[in-house]
Computed example of a mutant assay.
Amino acid sequence: MMMPGKLQGSAAGNRTSYSWLTAALIRAAVVILCVMTAVFFLIRIVPGDPAKMILGEYSTPEAIAAMHHTLGLDLPLWEQFIRFVKLLFTSGDTGNSIVSGTSTRVLIAERAPVTMLLIGMACVIAIVIALLLATVAATNKDKLADHLIRIFPAITLGMPIFWVGILFIMLLSVRLRWFPVGGVGEGWSGMLYSLTLPAVTVAFSQIPTLVRSLRAQMLEVLESDFVVTLRAARIPGRVILFKHVLRNSALPTLMLLGVNISYLIGGTLVVEQVFGIKGIGSLLFTSISNRDFPVIQGIALYCAVSVVIISLLVEILAKWLDPRTKGTR
């Protein structure tokens, strides 16, 4: 029979967990609202008149005024903002494209699958390579392999991702012909094959920080008392490494990956342009050059919301996996 004290402790722990989750959801909602406001006003601060860009340099003042009325740009700024928020919450849209007249939601939905697949592949590649390199480095502390792996992050962190992509294209696509130069293949196999090199390029920017974090955590766990006890009990080294060391070292690296997800998404958009992939990145750069601010707003908002949601899920997952965090927030 459970004691009253234990029941009270369990109820208090549940209340603490619920209050932490509520606070996390409120923080995420506030961040999304701030992003919405910032995206709306920052786009309008940028110099240039969308009406002139649509009608051309030699358009008449009357035509420009008519286009302003069509786009709603003749309204007060606060009224434009209210219409923007209302449209966003009622239809999940930021308006029609100034260039094509197509709904922003439709344009983004057409390009999103390729971008999401590229991000997913980059995450898997980054995690697998980081696990391998960090494990080799931690199990060979202060040896040649450890020194070489520790030099790797110091060199690669300063490389711009677009430059890395160009190098990969020149070496692996043009010279060795292992991968296509750009574009997206047909079918699942063709798509995965053509996105492999761009995914490796995106992962290249995340691997150094993940390797350094995971290596440091693994060394700390390897030197802990419970690992010494397991070794004294003659538990096989592989069991200790994969069942205990990696499990206890993965949470901080998982949190780091959640924090860096915004850099991962931003790097993906740049890499799409380098490899000529028709994803959200190419749509964003085209919209910027055309000053198609409804599409720019939509992409910025969807990317920001994705970052907030993924970060929130990673935080919840880390709290659920690590019993030490229960009741601390």
Rank of each mutant, 00 (worst) to 15 (best):
L171Q: 10
T209P: 00
V124S: 07
M170E: 15
S224P: 09
T139S: 11
S91P: 06
F162L: 12
S103L: 10
L214W: 13
W188Q: 03
L107R: 04
V184H: 02
W188V: 14
Q217W: 00
L131T: 14
I108G: 05
F179T: 06
G95R: 00
V164G: 00
F168W: 04
I125R: 05
S189T: 13
G158N: 00
S194R: 06
I151V: 13
M170D: 11
A199P: 09
A138C: 14
V200C: 11
C123K: 04
V99S: 12
V114Q: 01
M170S: 13
D142Q: 09
L222W: 01
A130S: 15
W163S: 15
A216S: 15
F179E: 07
L107P: 05
I166R: 13
A138F: 06
V164K: 00
L118S: 05
Q206L: 11
G190M: 11
G182S: 05
G182F: 03
T94A: 14
V202E: 02
L88Q: 13
I98N: 08
P153G: 08
V211S: 03
T115K: 00
G158R: 01
T115Q: 02
R212E: 12
F168N: 12
L214C: 09
L195K: 07
P113E: 12
I155R: 01
T201Q: 04
D146Y: 06
L176P: 09
T135K: 02
A134Q: 05
G101K: 12
F226T: 01
L157R: 13
G165C: 09
W188M: 13
S97Y: 06
P208A: 06
G120A: 11
V184S: 09
I149Q: 01
A134N: 04
K86N: 11
S97A: 11
L176W: 15
T94E: 04
A216C: 12
A137L: 07
T139V: 12
